[in-house]
C-alpha cells in the first residue's frame, strides 16, 4: 500500500508513496493531450463498430450498410460511366480510325502507355525495347508476325502459341538436333551460314558456312526464305539483319537451331477491354516500327 505520498520539491510531481530503502519513485501522470487522444480513439472505435461491418457473422453489416465489395463495384461503375463516351468511341473505331483522329489518337496514346506499362513492359521492356531470350523489340520495324494495325491487333488480342486462345498465332520450328534431323556438326555449319546471311561472316568460318548453305536451303529456307528474308505468315523471323531474339553470336544461334524454345504470348482479349486493346495497338504501332 502506498504509505506516504509526498510532493517532490524539484518537479512538483507526487511520488508513488512506495519507498525502498530510501528510494522513492515519481508518479508522473500521462500527458493530458495523450490521454484524451486515447479516450477519443476508444470512442471512435465504438462508433465505427456500429456504423461499419465489424462482426464476423452472417449478414452482419453496420447501420450504414456499407460493404467494401459493393462499394468498389459502384466505384468502378461510376468511373466506367465517366469514361464511357470516349471508351465507346475507342471500342467502336478500328485502330486505323483512331490513329487518324487527333482526339482519339491522343487519348489512345495516353491510355495505351499506361496499359503497356502494366501488361506488356515486363516482357517487351518499358520502352518496347525487348530483351534477349525471345522477347522481341516492338520499337523497331523488324516484325515477326507483321507490323500493320490489323496484325498488331490480332497479336495482342489472341497472343502467340498460348493454350488459352484457339485463334492464337502458332507455328513450330523443328528441334533439329533433339528431333534427329541434323547432327550437331551440321547445325554448326548452318549457324555459320546464317551469320553470313546477316553480313557478319567470319572469314575463319567460310568453309563451315559453305557447307551450311545447302543444309539451309534444304531445312530452313521454306520458312525463313532463300535469302533469310523471313516469313510473317508463319512467324519465321528475318535472318538477314542483325536483330536476334536469342543472342547474336554463332554459338547462341547454333544452340537455338539444335533445340529451339518457341516464344509464347498470352491472349489479352479476355483480360483487357476491347477499347484498351485498340489503344495498345495504336501505341505499339507508334513505338517506332508501325507499317501501313
Amino acid at each position: 500500500m502506498p504509505t506516504k505520498i509526498e510532493k517532490d520539491a524539484l518537479t512538483g510531481t507526487n511520488t508513488t508513496g512506495h519507498e525502498w530503502d530510501g528510494l522513492k519513485e515519481l508518479n508522473t501522470p500521462l500527458p493530458k493531450w495523450w490521454l484524451y487522444v486515447m479516450y477519443a480513439t476508444i470512442a471512435f472505435s465504438a462508433v465505427w463498430v456500429i456504423l461499419y461491418p465489424a462482426f464476423p457473422f452472417q449478414g452482419a453489416t453496420g447501420v450504414t450498410g456499407w460493404i467494401a465489395r459493393e462499394a468498389v463495384v459502384q466505384d468502378v461503375a461510376a468511373a466506367n460511366e465517366r469514361m464511357a463516351p470516349m471508351m465507346n468511341r475507342l471500342r467502336a473505331a478500328t485502330p486505323q480510325q483512331i490513329a487518324a483522329d487527333p482526339e482519339l489518337r491522343a487519348f489512345a496514346m495516353a491510355g495505351g502507355r499506361i496499359a503497356f506499362a502494366n501488361n506488356c513492359a515486363a516482357c517487351h521492356g518499358a520502352g518496347g525495347q525487348g530483351a534477349v531470350g525471345g522477347f522481341p523489340s516492338l520499337a523497331d520495324d523488324d516484325w515477326i508476325w507483321g507490323g500493320s494495325y490489323d496484325a498488331i491487333h490480332q497479336t495482342i488480342a489472341h497472343g502467340i502459341r498460348n493454350e488459352e486462345d484457339d485463334e492464337a498465332r502458332t507455328s513450330m520450328m523443328p528441334r533439329f538436333v533433339a528431333d534427329g534431323v541434323l547432327t550437331p556438326a551440321q547445325v554448326n555449319d548452318v549457324a555459320s551460314y546464317v551469320v553470313s546471311l546477316a553480313g557478319d561472316a567470319d572469314p575463319g568460318q567460310a568453309a563451315e558456312a559453305e557447307r551450311g548453305k545447302p543444309l539451309y536451303a534444304e531445312n530452313c529456307a521454306s520458312c525463313h526464305g532463300d535469302t533469310g528474308e523471313g516469313n510473317r505468315d508463319v512467324g519465321a523471323p528475318r535472318l538477314n539483319d542483325r536483330i536476334w531474339l536469342h543472342g547474336a553470336d554463332r554459338h547462341a544461334i547454333a544452340r537455338f537451331i539444335a533445340n529451339p524454345r518457341m516464344g509464347v504470348m498470352p491472349a489479352w482479349a479476355g483480360r483487357l477491354d476491347p477499347a484498351t486493346i485498340n489503344m495498345l495497338t495504336v501505341y505499339v504501332h507508334a513505338l517506332g516500327g508501325g507499317e501501313n
Partner: peptide, 12 residues
C-alpha cells in the same frame, strides 16, 4: 498466373 509466358517467368 498466365500473365506472362513460362519462359519469361524462368528467365526473370
Amino acid at each position: 498466373g498466365g500473365r506472362y509466358s513460362d519462359d519469361w517467368q524462368a528467365a526473370h
